[in-house]
Computed example of a mutant assay.
Amino acid sequence: MTRLSVNINKIATLRNARGGNLPDLLKTAKDIESFGAEGITIHPRPDERHIRYQDARDLKSVVRTEFNIEGNPIDSFEKLVLEVLPEQVTLVPDAPDAITSNAGWDTVKNQKYLREVIERFKKAGIRTSIFVDPDPEMVRAAKDTGTDRIELYTESYAKGFPENPEKAVAPFRRAAEAALEAGLGLNAGHDLNLENIRFFKEQIPGLLEVSIGHALICEALYLGLENTINMYKHRLS
Rank of each mutant, 00 (worst) to 15 (best):
M1F: 07
R3I: 08
R3E: 12
R15E: 06
R18G: 14
N21I: 10
D24Q: 10
K27N: 10
K30C: 07
K30M: 14
D31S: 12
I32Q: 04
I32H: 03
S34K: 15
A37S: 11
E38P: 03
G39Y: 01
I42A: 00
P44N: 03
P44L: 01
R45G: 04
P46M: 08
P46S: 11
R49G: 13
Y53C: 03
D58G: 05
V62W: 02
R64Y: 06
E66H: 04
N68W: 00
E70K: 01
D75E: 15
L80P: 00
L82K: 14
P86N: 05
Q88V: 08
V89I: 07
D94V: 08
A95S: 10
A95W: 11
I99N: 09
I99E: 15
A103M: 13
G104Y: 01
W105D: 02
D106T: 09
T107D: 10
V108I: 13
K109N: 11
Q111T: 05
K112C: 03
Y113P: 02
E116N: 12
V117I: 15
I118W: 03
E119S: 10
E119P: 00
K122C: 00
G125T: 09
I126N: 00
F131D: 03
V132R: 01
P134M: 05
D135E: 12
P136R: 08
P136E: 07
M138R: 13
A141G: 07
K143V: 05
R149N: 08
E155A: 13
E155H: 13
A158Y: 10
G160I: 01
G160F: 06
P162K: 13
N164F: 06
N164G: 08
E166D: 13
V169M: 07
A170Q: 14
P171V: 07
P171S: 10
A179S: 14
A182V: 08
A182K: 11
G185Y: 05
D191F: 14
L192K: 05
E195V: 13
I197D: 01
R198I: 03
F199Y: 15
K201C: 04
G206Y: 12
G206Q: 09
L207M: 12
I212C: 08
G213M: 04
A215H: 06
L216F: 06
A220R: 06
L223A: 12
N227G: 04
S237E: 11
